[in-house]
Design a protein around this nucleic acid. Sequence first.
DNA 1: AATACGTGGCC
DNA 2: TGGCCAAGTAT
Length: 309
Amino acid sequence: MTAPTKPTIPAQADAAETVGDDLHAPVIDWFEEHARDLPWRRPDAGPWGVMVSEFMLQQTPVSRVLPVYEQWMARWPRPADLAEDTPGEAVRAWGRLGYPRRALRLHGAAVAITERHDGDVPTEHAQLLALPGIGEYTAAAVASFAYGQRHTVLDTNVRRVFARAVTGVQYPPNATTAAERKLARTLLPDDERTAALWAAASMELGALVCTAKNETCVRCPIAALCTWRLAGKPAHDGPPRRGQTYAGTDRQVRGRLLAVLREAVTPVPQSVLDRVWEEPVQRARALDGLVADGLVEPLVGGLYRLPHG
DNA sequence: AATACGTGGCC
DNA sequence: TGGCCAAGTAT
């Protein structure tokens, strides 16, 4: 069918096409000067190192990932090495990084890579996306950082940089919008190598300079072009961004239960787990949830351990 | 679309 | 001191 009326191109996207050309060089130059020397960015990290780092960095600061990453890569230097071990060992090695389902999914991804991809991290975005624990962002990140491909890598840092520099607002929307994806595509350099650099550079800018709080515009390579800054840095208006409650939630109980099981060498009796939380209903619900998620394996006789299978 | 999912550092 | 924040994914 033909579209009788072509939607008007939003003025922002139109302007962005021009603006993009002004942003790329300064941001990439800044990156090449100021990029952190992170282990997963070194040439010897390889696609598996990039992928492991991306799993660990989901919602988790670099400083806490570094030591766990080093131990992980030393122990499981290839996907097949991790696949041979139990998922419980992955959960244990995950330590206190948080969101331990990531460890389970990373193990599952390693198994899938071993079975379906001959042990090599796949190169295609669609193949990456099909792996457990890999969503839109991580698929693009691995394809871009590990294989130098041209993808829109839209994480919280990049979204914030775009929101400020181009859209002129302090914070991006709560959830990623179609408009943001469109803007990211518009801003993505045509050249593959430049696009990959741009992805890493715009993310690093958001992580180091254009931060959520206490942004340091004096160090920003595109401050002169930043719409938000030029507008006087107006405060975020819209609906408040949902905070994450934690104290007293099932998540806290799950955390305590799993902490006990991570430290245990032998199966743990129910009675020991019972001590981590007073309230029995919530305690039972949390444990059931962990079992349902595959993070805990119940054995006969009221014993529990990290999953072996 | 909204919600669940860990943990710890910071101001 | 406690809410905010940190390279999201799955349902």
